[in-house]
Write a protein that binds this DNA or RNA. Structure first.
Lengths: 228, 228
DNA sequence: ACATAAAAGCGAATCAAATTCGAATTTGCC
DNA sequence: GGCAAATTCGAATTTGATTCGCTTTTATGT
């Protein structure tokens, strides 16, 4: 709808996304041997499945070990506790997600397009990785406890990015400069995550990605209309 | 803004709210002795505090027992497991919440007013009962596991009510008949719950109730504008 | 190929916390 | 005051996470 390509003004969003994509990767041990590296991946995949199925609290280390084909005590050679193992999963994937957004969002011309991309990518990513999404959206995101800095940060980045996109768009004049970025971001994120959560719990709407598009349309109309 | 008082048409919302308010109360045992009845309430209050502080998974039955001034094994005379104890809390309060909404919503003239009331009451209630809200919004609502029918139902009613309000409003001509009730309800609920969750986790915005009003304004504008 | 130190793996304890059980106490009621 | 039902609780039992110390495997230099 607008075009004003690359206004020079500092772009908040890029900075934030770049740092988020760099990730806070350094959990677990750093394997020196090949077999070990492979096993660590097996372990993470097995853990994702089991955690998604049973929830973190109910999941048994024994099940994860069996699923990964290693011994229970070996898990502790990789991660210091069941929780640390659980946290590692969203951290890795979120960093990857932010990276993909950076790559695909960079060439776009407007913040409006980037905002749309971000919201749609979030649902697509969840639809494509439902086990991971269950873990992130149903267990970790809302968890009372998590002070673990890396997780908290990776999750918070999600919100920071949306706020930055809204602000940058206002600054470029794509919508009212008086927009309440925080409130608008709350609506955008809340709607999308609620939709994802509903899908994860009930598989409704049947086609998450298809249902997202009209909702994003409606949400963007709200952004356009946002006044003081 | 509109007035069309009490159009006769069946009112979906009333039926749903009434059933929801009736609650699904029958958890735990039904004490015959006075002391026991009192203790059950102490237990539920203690449990609410401890669960809100530590999360359900980390909370220790021993802590709850100490806080309630009873022995650990006595808890099992009231509820069959830690989880059942945790579930009882939101079930009771939600029924009460729905009851209050019924009482306050009944006399209003428009569905628009009822919708506003419902959304604002939800945040108010959370702000007034933060321990309970932490338990509900951060732990139970998103929980992967809960098939326990009564909980699932009490939580689902929340969504059903919003959808019914949107539908009834459309039927009365308060907004477009072509509105996508499901999608609109997703936006409304998602925005509100996201706001509540953010407040519970970070105490931002500082004044939850005050911040809700302008957001609800914006959301209702979206309902008014909702086209096909 | 071979020796060796570092890296990785594992079974058998250990420990923490939920849950069960049966005896002892308290209550409501006659 | 006395009795049956209701309630309480301490002492097992059980489940499952975590730790420990020994064994096996790998990478690397010869």
């Amino acid at each position: 709808m607008l075009e004003k390509a690359t206004t020079p003004g500092r772009e908040r969003w890029r900075e934030i996304v770049e740092r988020a994509a760099a990730g806070y990767l350094d959990g677990g041990r750093d394997p020196k041997q090949d077999r070990s590296r492979r096993r660590q991946l097996d372990l993470l995949e097995a853990a994702t499945r089991v955690f998604a199925r049973d929830g973190i609290a109910k999941a048994k280390m024994a099940d994860i070990a069996a699923e990964a084909g290693i011994s229970v005590s070996s898990i502790y050679d990789y991660y210091p506790s069941k929780e640390d193992l659980a946290y590692e999963i969203p951290i890795r994937r979120l960093a990857q997600f932010y990276g993909e957004f950076l790559a695909q969002g960079e060439p776009l011309r407007t913040m409006r397009q980037r905002l749309r991309l971000f919201l749609e990518m979030a649902t697509e990513y969840a639809a494509r990785n439902p086990d991971w999404a269950r873990l992130l959206y149903l267990e970790i995101w809302p968890s009372v406890l998590i002070e673990e800095a890396r997780v908290r940060r990776a999750v918070d980045d999600f919100g920071r990015i949306v706020v930055a996109l809204v602000r940058d768009g206002a600054e470029r004049g794509e919508w009212s400069a008086d927009i309440n970025a925080y409130q608008t971001a709350t609506i955008l994120m809340g709607s999308i995550t609620h939709m994802i959560i509903t899908w994860l719990l009930y598989r409704r709407p049947e086609d998450l990605v298809a249902a997202t598009q009209p909702m994003v349309d409606q949400l963007l109309r709200l952004v356009d209309a946002a006044g003081p």
